[in-house]
Amino acid sequence: MADDDQRLAEFQARIDRGEKVEAEDWMPDDYRRQLIRLIAMHGISEIMGTLPEKEWVPKAPTLYRKLAIMAKVQDEEGHGQLLIRVAEDLLEPLGQNREDLFEDLFAGRLKFHNVFHMPAPTWADAGIIGWLVDGAAIVTQSMLLSGSYAPYGRALTRIVEEEGFHIHHGESICVSLAEGTPAQRAMLQDALERWWPALMTFFGPREGTHLSTHQQQNLRWRIRTKTNEELRQRFLTKFVGRIRSLGLIIPDPILRFDETTRQWHYREPDWDEFRRIIHNHGPMSQERLYLRQLTYDEGRWVREVLSKNARRSA
């Protein structure tokens, strides 16, 4: 027991010195579990996140928009691949792999991000996803980039770079609509109203005066370096002005920046609704899970070819 305590203390000392942890390094079981939880959820969210946007890939209005959104969705799938590989290295000592992650997803044990449970009924939704959902993601990911687990940090470096392009892609769609015909502007305003609640809950509930032990531990291990509320404040600072400059109205009458506290005030989102959504009771949760599971099951015979060949060449 004393040995364990000492190992743990040494691990914490490494983290405190700003050292990075590699996959093959010793790590506390709980550190590993927290990382798996975070990275698997992130990876699976990227995969599930391709579904609302792919609806618009062939429908994108022009050839150039088609090319751009195809590249974007491919990037998201690529991020999913990259992250799931990072998670697989962490799962290996537990005797698990990506098949377990998909099984967990289908069984409701592994959650995917709240925004990807939402419908995207118009082309403007594709613009808002690219601009603001990716904009919110980059706020979180830039924070995670400096976390203590090196393989995740390396994956995120590439991801954040590509997300930068996605924001331009999404913003460009939104700017065209905002500068377009009255029908195009109305389509964009509708989409913003549809997405705003999901964007406000994107970062998770505000912490009370006391952080949960769970979150304290993650901060101490530098798995994360900022609280949910700090991230939401940063998102608002980055985007509210830009959204308004397009002539859009944010559907929150009390949203304002308080110069004295340097904080945004906003209408409290419906956190009960948020919890329902992430427990797969959102408007599109079941439909998207069904789509993913159907093709996953029907593609099993193809994956068997690949896994057998991988073993042969190993």
């Binding site: 995969i47 050839l63 099993r300 193809v302």
Partner: peptide, 29 residues
């Protein structure tokens, strides 16, 4: 090819096929 986006049997195959779909769309353009 783009219909398979997000639905291919394997994540790696999905990424590769997405890239092919993009090339073909680029040629069409």
């Amino acid at each position: 090819a783009s219909e398979w986006l997000g639905l291919a049997p394997h994540i790696e195959a999905d990424v590769a096929f997405a890239s092919i779909a993009q090339d073909e769309m680029g040629h069409a353009t």
